[in-house]
Each structure stands twice: as structure tokens, then as C-alpha cells.
Design a protein around this nucleic acid. Structure first.
Length: 263
DNA sequence: CTCGACTCCTGTTAGC
DNA sequence: TGCTAACAGGAGTCGA
């Protein structure tokens, strides 16, 4: 599904859409417009303007508009960005592999004939004009070890739940969290504030490596744990059956042998 | 403020 | 073969 890694791919593909006059938009799905955003407001903000910069905080793609407005795009778990017919990624875990224009929830037409589409079968994404960026924590790609210790590795909440809390650190989704904790040998259910200094440093190191690997390999579904994330799946390291639990409301796989509860 | 539970969405898939 | 129910998870809301 789209996590910070996929949104980074979307951001890069959105750079193709910069500096091109916008001639028309399609924002007919009212459900898809969030936080009071309306089709009228989007029309006012975008028509005859241009995108000037493509940014990203966590899973939020932010397109700066030439009049000072900012367009926030969210992709839920099945959203893709398609610019000029080119999808920036060719595989998306949990999404349909079909290519159905009926799933276009928001479309921007450029005067040169090009088109940018937000295609989201399950409609869990959204479009926000001038999104509240203060609600997001530091982006996972640039978070420092001390920021992670101060903002994430505190309290009694399950470690994985904290990693998924976008207001603490932004961009980590379920697959990045499971892969990182699996590589770091940390139990996802441990209290977030219970990590020793060496453990927290191990977590930071593996988070950075996982993000780099996923970027290099094409997405958050390319982890070494991925093929085993199913009922009865075995740990690729130890060969023992993985634990399957709900942590932070998400299906969580971990290895009882090298991610033991005792830490 | 914190935190778990609940809800939304719908294509896919497992199972009868 | 055909149907139904479970499943997936990002994000917002609500209540304790």
C-alpha cells in the first residue's frame, strides 16, 4: 500500500506536472474532498494557475500552486498518481492491478493536453486544499535519532503503534513498521519507551536502511518479511512460524524467536 | 493529553 | 460454479 516510500515515488512523478498551466479539474467525488475542501474552492485555486513545487511530508503529497495555495493529496491504501498516463509505480500491494478510469477520484488537466490523475479504487485517499501540515510529525526519511527518541520512543504504548502515529513521525505504514522491527529484532508490542540506548540506535539504523532499500527496490512490498506476512508464514531468518497479532489496530507479523517479548 | 475502539471505503480472496 | 463473508489499512472521530 502507499506508505512514505510510494508517496515519494508519486512526488517525483508529480515533478513532471510542474510549471504547466492548469486548464480544467474534475473533482466530482464529494467524499474524496476532505476538511471542508469543495470543488468550487479547488477550481478557484487551480484554474489558470500552475504547480510550482512538489513536496511531501510522510504520506501527504503537497503541490504548491503559483497563487500561494497548497494542494494536499492523500492516497489511502490503494491510491496511485498517474501523470500523462504514466503510473509512477507498477505494483501496489492490496490494490487492484486493473486499470479502470472509473477509479479516478480527482483529475487535473493541463493546457498542453496532459493529465494528472489520482486513481483510488477504495476511496480511502483524499484531496485537501491547504492541508494542516502541523498535524504531522517529522518525515521518516529525515527524522534524526534524537527526534525519534524524544517523540516516538516514549510512553507505554506499543512500539509499533507509535511508529504508525503520523503525528509523531510521518510516513511509516504497516509494512515499513513490520519490516523495520523484524530486521531490528524488536517486539512490536513492547512499550515504546522501554528501549535501551543500543536498541533505539538499532531501530533508527534499520529504519533508515529499510526506507533506502524500499526506495531502491520499488516499494514497501519489497521487504524480506513480505512473502511471509500471511497466516502460518515462517520467519525467513529462523524458520519458525510468525506471530500474527493486531497491534495499533493493524495486522502485525513478528518472529517469536528473534523478536522476543522480553526484549 | 493519551489511547484504544470504532468507522469509513470497496476490490479481492478464502471458504462453503 | 456461484455466492457470501472476511480481509486489507490510512485516517478521522469519539469516549474513557
Amino acid at each position: 500500500m502507499p506508505e512514505g516510500v510510494e508517496i515519494e515515488f508519486y512526488r517525483r512523478s508529480a515533478e513532471v506536472a510542474l510549471d504547466r498551466p492548469i486548464s480544467e479539474i474534475e473533482a466530482n467525488d464529494e467524499w474524496f474532498l476532505k476538511s471542508g475542501t469543495t470543488a468550487e474552492a479547488l477550481t478557484d485555486a487551480l484554474i489558470d494557475e500552475r504547480f510550482t513545487e512538489a513536496g511531501r511530508i510522510g504520506k501527504l503529497l503537497i503541490l504548491d500552486v503559483s497563487n500561494g495555495a497548497r494542494l494536499g493529496l492523500r492516497f489511502g491504501m490503494t491510491g496511485r498518481l498517474i501523470v500523462d498516463g504514466e503510473a509512477s509505480i507498477d505494483y501496489l500491494e492490496y490494490s487492484s492491478q486493473r486499470n479502470d478510469p472509473a477509479w479516478d477520484r480527482f483529475v487535473v488537466h493541463f493546457a498542453d493536453g496532459g493529465v494528472m490523475r489520482l486513481r483510488d479504487p477504495r476511496r480511502l485517499g483524499g484531496v485537501v486544499l491547504d492541508p494542516d501540515e502541523s498535524a504531522l510529525g517529522v518525515d521518516a526519511f529525515v527524522v534524526t535519532p534524537s527526534q525519534l527518541r524524544n517523540r516516538v520512543l516514549v510512553g507505554t504504548v506499543a512500539l509499533k503503534a507509535r511508529l504508525l502515529d503520523q503525528s509523531r513521525v510521518a510516513g511509516i505504514g504497516n509494512l515499513i513498521a513490520d519490516e523495520t522491527l523484524w530486521r531490528a529484532g524488536l517486539d512490536p508490542a513492547r512499550a515504546a519507551g522501554s528501549l535501551s540506548r543500543p536498541e533505539s540506535e538499532r531501530l533508527v539504523r534499520h529504519l533508515r536502511k529499510v526506507l533506502a532499500d524500499f526506495l531502491a527496490d520499488g516499494g514497501s512490498h519489497t521487504g524480506r518479511l513480505q512473502d511471509s506476512r500471511h497466516r502460518g508464514g515462517q520467519c525467513p531468518k529462523d524458520g519458525v512460524e510468525l506471530l500474527r497479532r493486531q497491534i495499533g489496530g493493524r495486522t502485525t507479523f513478528s518472529c517469536p524467536r528473534h523478536q522476543p517479548a522480553s526484549g
